[in-house]
């Protein structure tokens, strides 16, 4: 019983994180049909912001992290992605890949390849123990942050005019534009939201890891991408569901795999994703007509 509860707690934590990464990727993909590898660069930039603002009060650090991530997301959209908007999705994929590599080399060049460590908040290192169940406080923080962000995003999308315009653009961009929805503004907004999600990811990841490297966030985005693919890249609900499914599957594999195979958990996960993609390419990724700008 306790092992089950413990596994559930871990799966929830992992799933929440994956959902957070997946949402950032799906947000941009839904609007632009761009698989944004550079989402990892946003998380990395957030991480370094936290490192370099270590002396400031926590609230200021968090605000700065969000500001940096949002600003970088919007700058990348303007400088790198606006120019390839009408290109094939694969060309956009190569571009985002190039941008993420460029920014991680830039970070290495500026801050060095060695990990830079910082403490987000002492709370992140504490934990509760209920009988035999071990619950790090950061897990609780993670789940709360993820739930608040997902809920807030849901409210924004369903209850505000700007959210309605985003949903319309995600379904049929050309028609949305005919009705007066400004393409550039919607796309910028999508990137800005992905920036907020990246900032949250940076805080939670750094809270758990304690240090930042130039490739910080890259694995997170790989898992987020996979989660988003599992849920059907263009759907935000799917991204959240995919995140939790992947989190649970990961946890399950961890527990269930025989000792000899346990190290191959990631290999199995990604092989499964490969199979999923080749078996149901259309079902998962609809390159619907009239959606891209």
């Amino acid at each position: 019983m306790t092992t089950l509860v413990q596994a559930l707690v871990n799966a929830l934590n992992l799933g929440g994180l994956y959902a957070l990464y997946a949402l950032g990727v799906a947000m941009v993909f839904g609007i632009l049909r761009l698989v944004n590898f550079a989402h990892s660069s946003l998380i990395m930039a957030g991480g370094y912001t936290l490192v370099f603002t270590a002396s400031l009060p926590l609230v200021v650090r968090l605000a700065l992290t969000v500001a940096v991530c949002v600003a970088l997301a919007m700058v990348l959209e303007l400088v790198a992605f606006r120019g390839v908007r009408s290109a094939a999705p694969e060309t956009m994929l190569v571009t985002s890949f190039a941008v993420s590599m460029l920014l991680s080399s830039l970070a290495e060049s500026l801050f060095g390849a060695l990990p830079r460590s910082t403490d987000v908040d002492p709370v992140f290192r504490e934990s509760w123990t209920f009988g035999q169940i071990y619950l790090p406080k950061i897990n609780a923080v993670t789940v709360v942050v993820v739930v608040v962000l997902i809920g807030g995003l849901g409210l924004f999308l369903t209850r505000t005019p700007a959210g309605l315009r985003m949903r319309a653009a995600a379904e049929d961009f050309a028609t949305a534009r005919l009705l007066g929805v400004a393409a550039n503004r919607v796309i910028s907004l999508a990137f800005a939201i992905s920036g907020v999600l990246a900032a949250a990811a940076a805080v939670l990841l750094l809270g758990a890891n304690g240090s930042v490297t130039p490739t910080f966030g890259f694995n997170a985005v790989l898992f987020g991408l996979i989660a988003a693919v599992v849920g059907g890249l263009s759907s935000l609900r799917g991204a959240v569901a995919g995140g939790f499914v992947l989190g649970a599957a990961s946890q399950l594999l961890q527990e269930a795999l025989p000792v000899g195979l346990a190290p191959f958990r990631d290999a199995l996960l990604f092989a499964a994703v490969f199979c999923l993609l080749v078996v149901r390419p259309q079902g998962l990724i609809r390159s619907g007509q009239g959606v891209r700008v």
Binding site: P161, L164, R165, R167, A168, E171, D172, A174, T175, A176, L178, L179, G180, V181, G290
Partner: peptide
């Protein structure tokens, strides 16, 4: 200028109310 495109192109995932609200975007 308003265009009603061939094939209607209504937003199928949105409600009728939301489709109409989008018509008044400008």
């Amino acid at each position: 200028v308003a265009l009603v495109p061939e094939g209607r192109n209504i937003f199928t995932a949105l409600t009728v109310a939301e489709n109409l609200a989008l018509g008044a975007t400008i």
